[in-house]
Design a protein around this nucleic acid. Structure first.
Lengths: 255, 255
DNA sequence: AAGTGGTCTAGACCACGTT
DNA sequence: ACGTGGTCTAGACCACTTT
């Protein structure tokens, strides 16, 4: 990790043009993200203490604090008073909750049962290549899975992953794993999902989907198209979800 | 505005039990929210400067800063370097964007044309009373409106408001107003929508809705049930939206 | 030049969890 | 008792906007 930071980036002598002014704490934030991206500290682990980081970067503790504050606000880090600051992991209900917006109309959230129906390696279509920032024809892993709650089929997900990042991924591996998919990706492939964008639409269930979900054809289905990003805002997953929303709904907060 | 703040709330002598420890900046934050709720400063106006507030509350500027930081993060306030800190208003595209999640599949966001179809005063059903924290039978304003983009009908909203807060609201008034509904509520009734919770489902268009939206019956419709809250987390609007999502989608970010 | 928010520092002390 | 994050302070200086 580099030590000396520019306190006056791009504004030394003649040009006080601060068009690209970048505060110290933001530079430190970037360095921390890079470290996370490199895997210097694994999900679930503690990062060095604030005083330690302050020493390392040669800035005051308050400056490190502000960088960490922002990363905690973005949910990349998790602060726990008295214990330390930890790398977020999908092996926590709290994080999982942010990525599964489906909630029951009544009662408590049930754990989902996941069943992988298909997992094959294919070549990226133009559309998928564009979204995942690959070249057309690049290898891609295509997964179809069914999520059930209390044995009621509720979600069919079609998932596309860059083949280069998920070598050796198979239906057997996936079905042998208990727990959230993103937790699996994290521990088995070192890929942390950090953020996602979703587009939600109402569509009709086609023959395929209606069969899998056990509903009559043309039942209204909530279609959720998701692009997930890892640390440096690199897209690493395209997911098309089909939700039955008679007993469940997609929850959202507007702030 | 009260001046003296408890620096050690509920933990004076014998019991250092900080079960209810409340930092200074949070107390100040609460005072600021109360002031906003009272309407001490109107949407769009500047609040006093940080140094002014620090003086007023008898704390350091940094403590005021932290309170304002949180309110800015929650979008109640808007900081503008060199100019001041302003009360958020729905008369800004930036704020409106947060509350209208519908975006076109292609092209830029168009301004919506709003047409109020109905506005009447009714008595709250048990369900509506529960959500709006009223008594069953309390007066409620019921509005039905149609949103169109480039003359294409796209959204039907059924809106319910507490009658006591929206006296004199009528279809004429509503239709005479250009701009976002929440901006209208803000300037005409002093009600600021600050936060909302939504539940999204896929349903079939019934006869009513399909006619209004110009689609065939049983077309899949995105149904968006929203509860909006004003400053002290008081619910002040129940809204049931019906979106046609062939050319538009509901966008969302997972962080 | 003056006023605003934004950054950075250094230090004191508190709350929380672990040893 | 110790180490962690959390709060609060006071002061210096920077960046941005307006006068």
């Amino acid at each position: 990790m580099p030590e000396a930071l520019a306190r006056k980036p791009l504004s030394a002598a003649s040009t006080p043009v601060s068009a690209a002014f970048r505060p110290l704490y933001r530079q430190i934030k970037d360095l921390l993200v890079q470290a996370l991206d490199r895997g210097d500290w694994k999900p679930g682990e503690a990062i060095p203490s604030e005083t330690e980081l302050a020493l390392r970067f040669q800035v005051s503790q308050g400056t490190v604090r502000k960088a960490v504050d922002e990363l905690a606000a973005e949910n990349l880090l998790l602060r726990r008073q008295g214990k330390g600051t930890f790398v977020s992991t999908h092996h926590e209900a709290r994080v999982r909750f942010r990525f599964l917006r489906l909630a029951p109309n009544q009662g408590e959230v049930q754990p989902a049962e996941s069943q992988v129906l298909d997992c094959r390696r294919v070549r990226a279509s133009a559309e998928i290549a564009r979204v995942l920032e690959l070249k057309g024809g690049d290898p891609v892993v295509a997964i179809r899975r069914l999520l059930s709650f209390a044995s009621v089929p509720t979600v069919v997900d079609d998932i596309y992953l860059p083949g280069a990042l998920f070598k050796g991924l198979s239906a057997e591996l996936l079905n042998g794993y208990r727990g959230p998919l993103y937790g699996f990706f994290e521990t088995e492939f070192g890929i942390s999902m950090v953020r996602a964008e979703e587009k939600v639409r109402a569509v009709s269930a086609d023959a395929d989907i209606s069969t899998l979900l056990g509903v009559v054809q043309d039942t209204p289905i909530l279609k959720v198209d998701r692009i997930s990003f890892t640390y440096a805002d690199r897209p690493v997953e395209l997911r098309m979800g089909h939700y039955v929303t008679d007993r469940y709904h997609y929850r959202n907060s507007l702030n």
